[in-house]
Design a protein around this nucleic acid. Structure first.
Length: 279
DNA sequence: CTCAGTGTTCAGTG
DNA sequence: TCACTGAACACTGA
């Protein structure tokens, strides 16, 4: 479930499990899509025996900083994520007698690491839209180098933010989803931010007033920071958020305040918005 | 069986 | 060349 807050939660759990440990075993799935045809042996060679020094992140990309380069750079796509043997992301499946038992490593595991203290970390991705790459300096090489500001750590000043929006003719929703603009913003965050800022998602970005731009920037910061602060646990998102009501395109969908929610395809994505509030 | 889906890329268009 | 759009990608689960 990876927009920035989920990826950041993954980064922190990987930090707890991996930082300071050496990798003693590596299992690489045979998946030419996720690994972009890089041979499994090369992935293994880069990881085996290495010590993890830190876990980096920018937008929705993560990487393990090892004691030797290259480093693995991970993108979770739509369905990927980190898993640990006791972690909350571990999937439960039915075992033979109708009981539930954890499957380890999980289904669809692409990369499975075992550390010298016995800890383990797996990257799983059912839909295979995720990617695992090797880079010598992730921040300076694509795809990470092509990202815009990080929506948690590097939101530009109001003046710079405004400059980024001027002259843009794409719908503001499309601009928010553009990772070279705001790295880490995904579909639900874009909708949440536009709802809270009171902006119609179809508006062309360059037509927003200075006040609207300020509100938009402030809401990007607030929504992302809040979601990260509660560890991406959506049960703890404020009740006022559109988030809790936007899923499932039922015509009767309402916000907590009884405002009617509309679902349209904007910028090629299902967009939940509230015409009464968003102008 | 059909379709939507928390994401990105790339060909095509203007 | 640039900005933008929409289809394609791959697969699960409703």
């Amino acid at each position: 479930m990876p927009e920035l807050p989920e990826v950041e939660a993954g980064r922190r759990s990987a930090e707890r499990v991996a930082v300071g440990r050496a990798i003693t075993r590596v299992h690489v799935a045979d998946d030419p899509i996720v690994f972009e045809r890089v041979p499994a042996a090369r992935i293994r060679r880069a990881l085996l025996g290495r010590r993890v020094q830190a876990i980096g992140r920018r937008g929705k990309h993560l990487w393990l900083e090892l004691d030797r380069r290259p480093w693995p750079v991970i993108h979770f796509g739509m369905t990927g994520g980190f898993h640990t043997p006791e972690g909350s992301e571990v999937r439960l499946i039915s075992s033979g007698k109708g009981r539930r038992a954890p499957l380890w490593p999980p289904r669809f595991t692409k990369l499975h690491l075992v550390f010298d203290d016995g800890g383990e970390l797996a990257v799983a991705d059912a839909r295979r839209l995720g990617r695992i790459r090797l880079r010598h300096d992730p921040a300076l090489e694509p795809p990470v180098s092509a990202l815009g500001f990080d929506a948690l750590l590097d939101v530009p000043t109001p003046a710079k933010f405004r400059a980024l929006m001027t002259g843009r003719s794409a719908p503001v929703k499309a601009l928010l989803l553009d990772q070279s603009f705001a790295a880490g913003v995904g579909n639900w965050i874009a909708d949440e931010v536009l709802y809270q800022a009171g902006i119609d998602p179809r508006r062309r970005a360059g037509t927003l007033s200075e006040l609207e731009i300020r509100r938009l920037r402030a809401k990007i910061k607030a929504v992302v920071a809040t979601a990260v602060r509660v560890g991406s646990n959506s049960d703890r998102y404020p009740r006022t958020w559109l988030f809790h009501h936007r899923w499932g395109k039922n015509a009767a969908a309402m916000t907590g305040r009884g405002e009617k929610i509309r679902h349209d395809t904007i910028a090629g994505r299902t967009t939940a918005w509230v015409p009464k509030v968003q102008r």
